[in-house]
Write a protein that binds this DNA or RNA. Sequence first.
DNA 1: CATGAATGAGCCTTCATTCAT
DNA 2: GATGAATGAAGGCTCATTCAT
Lengths: 190, 190, 190, 190
Amino acid sequence: MARPAVKKQDMENAAIRLFATKGLAQTTVKDIASEAGVTEGALYRHYPGKNAMAWQLFCREIETFSAELGTRMFAPGAPLAARVEASVRFIFDYYGKYPVQFAFILLTQHGFPEERILDVASNPNDMVERFVDEAVRAGEIPSMNSSLASGLVLGLVLQVMVMDRYDRIEIDGSVVDDVVSAVKRVLMIG
Amino acid sequence: MARPAVKKQDMENAAIRLFATKGLAQTTVKDIASEAGVTEGALYRHYPGKNAMAWQLFCREIETFSAELGTRMFAPGAPLAARVEASVRFIFDYYGKYPVQFAFILLTQHGFPEERILDVASNPNDMVERFVDEAVRAGEIPSMNSSLASGLVLGLVLQVMVMDRYDRIEIDGSVVDDVVSAVKRVLMIG
Amino acid sequence: MARPAVKKQDMENAAIRLFATKGLAQTTVKDIASEAGVTEGALYRHYPGKNAMAWQLFCREIETFSAELGTRMFAPGAPLAARVEASVRFIFDYYGKYPVQFAFILLTQHGFPEERILDVASNPNDMVERFVDEAVRAGEIPSMNSSLASGLVLGLVLQVMVMDRYDRIEIDGSVVDDVVSAVKRVLMIG
Amino acid sequence: MARPAVKKQDMENAAIRLFATKGLAQTTVKDIASEAGVTEGALYRHYPGKNAMAWQLFCREIETFSAELGTRMFAPGAPLAARVEASVRFIFDYYGKYPVQFAFILLTQHGFPEERILDVASNPNDMVERFVDEAVRAGEIPSMNSSLASGLVLGLVLQVMVMDRYDRIEIDGSVVDDVVSAVKRVLMIG
DNA sequence: CATGAATGAGCCTTCATTCAT
DNA sequence: GATGAATGAAGGCTCATTCAT
């Protein structure tokens, strides 16, 4: 009978918040521990180390996000344009609702010494690629390099978020509208 | 007699190469020194410290790049579409010719504890923004949020490079063509 | 119902095996627990701490061994040479039969921060010393410094085992014969 | 031009003294540093780490010792018995003159996680083995297993030192005489 | 009796920076 | 200008031990 281990949750929340704010390398184990109200050693009961913890949380967050994104992107029966629109809107909703988690994904993605975001089992990149492939095969959009298309589309969305975090723009409804139509134009939909 | 302080050059080259390869935080002063064939203390003869050195090199690289980019983007007398095309092609040329420098810019941009790329005096972001503003004012493209547009356009280009570095795509002529037309579609040119 | 506290046995066996293999300092409480299939805290149900456990086991093993050795060394009525021979043979038999326990004694003897093998109530050293004293008093061997003689004799036997563990020699019947006669020559028996 | 680096000497002396006194595992880097009057980091300019330092010093000490021992053991032209006697006396002289170094060799020999004394290039064990082989080949002593003989002889000498360090005996001239004759008897010389 | 999360002190190591030479 | 030994402040991690469950 283990105790409710609520401290683990505290540590994970603290870690994500700190990773998202200061970056992986700039966040110390001591930071995480004191933010979570525990001592340093406690981390090592649940994770093999700091980087491993970050990577594990990173995968979990990105997979949670991807799973939900998938239901929009591949909603059965929905027309292509609607699925694109729903997907983009979902991403920005998610970004608005879980800004810390999203910032964590955004800021940490290139910071791992060994691992890479594309190694995560279910990642948005692969999903967009599959989406494009299927659309091409269905004759709904012209033939195109799906890997490239996936990069282009994600570039549009992610960079807008980067600019939001850098206070260059403020994301609101009209911005999202603009991104939706940019994505459609890049994919030559409608 | 002996050549002059060619050591400084060696150190800068080593630093850029290492920062581009391993990232700022993962590169130690000892790494730089030994790669350049000098000792650790030598760095402090030319720079106040490691981060300052990186930031200084970063600004220099980005300004060199920006200056050249500007001549394409604002080529006097050239039509809009041609300037867009020339700009995108230049970016990829530069990326192909100075991959280390470019990776340095790409990988280091989020790695500074204090500074940010948008603070660099002459940065691509501002340039694209100005480009869009002028095009709108000239009635060459529909009215649009230029900050957002700048983000979208840079997102297209940068993410393609990220994917190249992650071996998801290989940049060649047709990829560049595709990016050029994606940028044009996003800016609603032609 | 369930068997009684067989867990304690498991822990002791695991501890002895690990101490013998990796040494005292290199063996962690977690090692012992996981090897024994229990959790870390369980150790403290039976022992005040790791070092105390090791010392207790060490004393137990050495006393068990010493007691049996004593019956050979001081077998009533047996001639001196026979008792020496029986003793040496017993040591090597024991070493062959309980290699882990013996290695534990051998490798751990200098590893305790506070305690020392010579502090154990019944230890081989004291026994050999008494043996020599009595033989001298009985006029069976020339007068000699019994403390020194005890060191010499034990040195012969123990170092052979060390060499066996280091794979420099392989102990077999003829090796034991040689050690027996070496001991006799050192003690000037026969 | 490096400064006289007298601190390195201090650190090595402190390390040897501490390793000999408390053992390898019980000696911390902080101990060594503070005993040598430097800070912890200083160690890492000269050695890759604590264990590496200990092993390096250990090898150096044992090789210094072995080299000198070799000149006695293989003194050209000297008769066998004289060489044995000179060798044993030299060992005890060395032990008396450099008790710390010798204790370091004695106490540390089993404490390395990876390495072993018999792996040292020039070690006493190999030397004694060669000595016995040559003596057998020259017909000066009966045929015998030289590996075993080497173990026996070293067992005699080392265990006497262990007992000295444990205050069970006090080494003086007559003890050394006794060890010399014990060695001769074991090797069946004279 | 057993669990295992948590502690707290300490360990080895790293590294940007300083400074006597 | 250059050297490299030394510093000092962390940093990540380990581990014997405690204790609420």
